[in-house]
Design a protein around this nucleic acid. Structure first.
Lengths: 206, 206, 206, 206
DNA sequence: TCCTAACCGAGACGGTACGTCACGTCTTTTT
DNA sequence: AAAAAGACGTGACGTACCGTCTCGGTTAGGA
């Protein structure tokens, strides 16, 4: 029957830790926030943090889940371009409000460590996002909007990559214009027939 | 006359540090390599490391400069698609041989810290790359290959972002097929007339 | 109710540190012993040393307390001269066995730093010793052995100072003959009536 | 013929170093002053300091020589008590003006190091002082002022030790009253016949 | 109503690395 | 040959956090 004995997990502590972590990540950045500081700010024992979130990135992932749960549903407007644009707008809202950007930056850092954490991280962010974008492109292909030969993996990389560029490098904003332009360009790319039959000449051969 | 006084910087130490850092970054990863360990491995005082490379990311940048100097020249084949493909192929060669991937991953991590380091990092990588891609697209626009209305900033984000996606997430290789496909897709995106006149309907309105 | 929270201080670590410090001070001397080395020799984290003994001189003081606790009781033989001699003999036994000499030498060094540490040091050594000697002379005065006019502060300085001279400069041993002679001389000095009524002529006036 | 070739020692540098050292020792204390800081303050290369003063204590000794050269001559007033008092007064003048106290404190620290430095130090301070006091007592003995049995070594220890007590512990000033009282007490001690024929009873036997 | 298990806060523990300071030596050009 | 300048390898400093561990003190079933 899997009965649980002993004192149950404290909901108050859980929330205090998440709130403190979110605040500190947002204020000082992910890498400059220590678990020690989070525990202290939450008024909680260090052990309690380690018991429920084995690493700092688990904490970050938990906060990401709290912050951007709605962005997991792929929009369905009937047209690829507006699907992409809608997805981007809802995503940008989640990313530009609150400390989400700092968290995501921190996550990718951790993901470079060991192989396991790369897997962890992909599951949390990249793959989740890839599933949505793949779904969008798939539906468009099924509708005949884009040719069967379209490389959906590649298109997804371009889409998600462009978002990351702005997110990480910060040279330009995540705004509506960016959403519209990106959507339009991706539709154009996806729609093109694969006409590159003659192999592009090598740089050396030019 | 700008005369230099005092004992000159030791070239041997400089090279020993760079070699040790390159090896350790490649072996253990960027974040699991300490400056202490680099100094010890190089047979050099810690102060000597700190004197010339104030932070670990400066060291990484220096190694990047050493590893990928050739990738700074924009290819010129006369056609946008082959220009991009050529650039990608030479870039991939630099990235997939040696510990460059680990270094670049580490760099982006550090770049999330304070505002100053973001600037540092952009100067080293993003902006440098952006200059090259912008140059490619500019020439194509001047040749009339792509319309004047093409958003070059956006195209650059898609191009560089796609590379980063593969580099960081590692779900697919940086190979010739990727280079060809990406080049073709970007040409298609760039060539498209801006037809998104009717504003895409909102997600809520669907 | 003064309840104690958190993990209690480790008695094993405490003893290990004191033992290591005593050994190293004795072997290498006070100033050539680093806290780093003490921690390592004790198999203890550096922080643990710093937590309980903020400075090296605190450590030295703690060892002094351990080594010479018996010397704190003023002897009472009924005669000033034998009181002093007895005190000196018990003191010399404590000082000449073990690394006490090196420790005391070290302490006086540290005491020269800031004003606060001078206070610290006086409390630990000088004042403690002064209390005992003052007690000896006081009792002798009350017994009528020495005149009321005897300058007890001055006599104490001569007594303790003579000990220090031998301890620090090391030109002659701390032995029984020294104890006897010092005791006799101090009794003679203390017993003398203050006959120096005519002010001693100045050097310049001679 | 012993001709010296090459650039002669710079008198300006010598003086600059001594002046800077004296100032810094006085300001920050002996142990908190680094040779690095002295060289910088003197506007002199570090090597120049090391060339002429191999250790910090050599520097201190050099300054001591500069500050208290006159105190080396034993006064001769014809009476032991006034001799001692005169010596003390001139000594106190040297010690209480300028940074001499800090320097002397520092010296004794260094003297605890290796055996060689103890020798160094004794030569510079203790022995020099001992020679003077021994001279004083000797003359008094020759004049018949004090008995032939007087232990001059012991008397010297009491005299120099009492000075050190005040100098180091700082519980009371080095003033005229101290000089007079000390002189009187020492004369009394020295004059006493060795009456301690019956061995002082042991503490245990009391 | 106890018992027992798991939680909680606090904070000490052995470690690793940090970035800085000073050491005493060295290598350069200038005097 | 001595000087100013300053880089060099070395070693220690005192601090910050790591993740683990032990305390006393809750807070729930199950006996």
């Amino acid at each position: 029957m899997n009965i649980v004995r002993g004192r149950p997990r404290s909901e108050a502590s859980t929330q205090a830790v998440l709130a403190a972590a979110e605040r500190l990540f947002g204020t000082n950045g992910y890498s400059r926030t220590s678990i020690e500081a989070i525990a202290k700010a939450a008024g909680v024992g260090k052990q309690t943090v380690y018991r429920w979130w084995p690493t700092k990135s688990h904490l970050a992932a938990a906060i990401y889940e709290q912050l951007a749960p709605s962005s997991k549903i792929a929009p369905n407007t009937g047209a690829l371009q507006s699907d992409i644009a809608a997805m981007l707008r809802s995503l940008f809202t989640a990313y530009t409000s609150g400390p989400a950007a700092a968290l995501l930056s921190g996550l990718i850092v951790e993901a470079q460590g060991s192989d396991e954490s790369v897997m962890d991280f992909r599951a949390v962010f990249f793959d989740e996002r890839r599933i949505i974008t793949t779904d969008l492109f798939d539906r468009a292909r099924n509708r005949g909007e884009i040719p069967l030969s379209a490389d959906i993996d590649l298109l997804s990389d371009m889409l998600i990559g462009a978002i990351w560029m702005r997110l990480l490098a910060g040279h330009a904003p995540l705004d509506g214009a960016f959403a519209e332009g990106l959507a339009a360009n991706l539709v154009a790319a996806a729609s093109a027939e694969p006409t590159q039959t003659p192999r592009t000449p090598d740089l050396e051969a030019s």
